[in-house]
Amino acid sequence: MIPFILCFILFLIGIYGIITQKNLIKIIIGLAIMEYSVNLFLILIGYINGGTAPIITHYTSANASFVDPLPQALILTAIVIGLATTALLLALAIRLYRKYGTFDIRKINSLKG
């Protein structure tokens, strides 16, 4: 149970980072921490003590226990999506830096309301 609670705490740390930080890069890091915590949570779901990789080979014994492959597939997809999101966010942050000369969100405020 403890790993799951730690995962949830990591998730909350990510949200805390997004809400309190004023630096664009730190906000992106906060989002990345949230993403990792969710990935960690998913991988814990599929974990079995003593399980092996879920692939049948010559060396697989008949009574071997596999870890659940489905969460792994989910995480792989989630990682790819996270990669795209983070890359896009970083590109936006660089562009914003060029326009404003700063990463501080308090100075980036052309939109109101």
């Binding site: 949570f41 969460p71 999101t85 326009k99 404003y100």
Partner: peptide, 30 residues
């Protein structure tokens, strides 16, 4: 332009949080 970039950043941070909350829900469900 300035406005578009800022709007997109805001949209993306909130949208990213929404996606992760949905993914957490999916994890719980499974």
């Amino acid at each position: 332009e300035k406005q578009q970039l800022e709007a997109s950043f805001k949209y993306q941070v909130l949208g990213g949080m929404a996606s992760l909350i949905i993914l957490l829900g999916i994890g719980f469900l499974y």
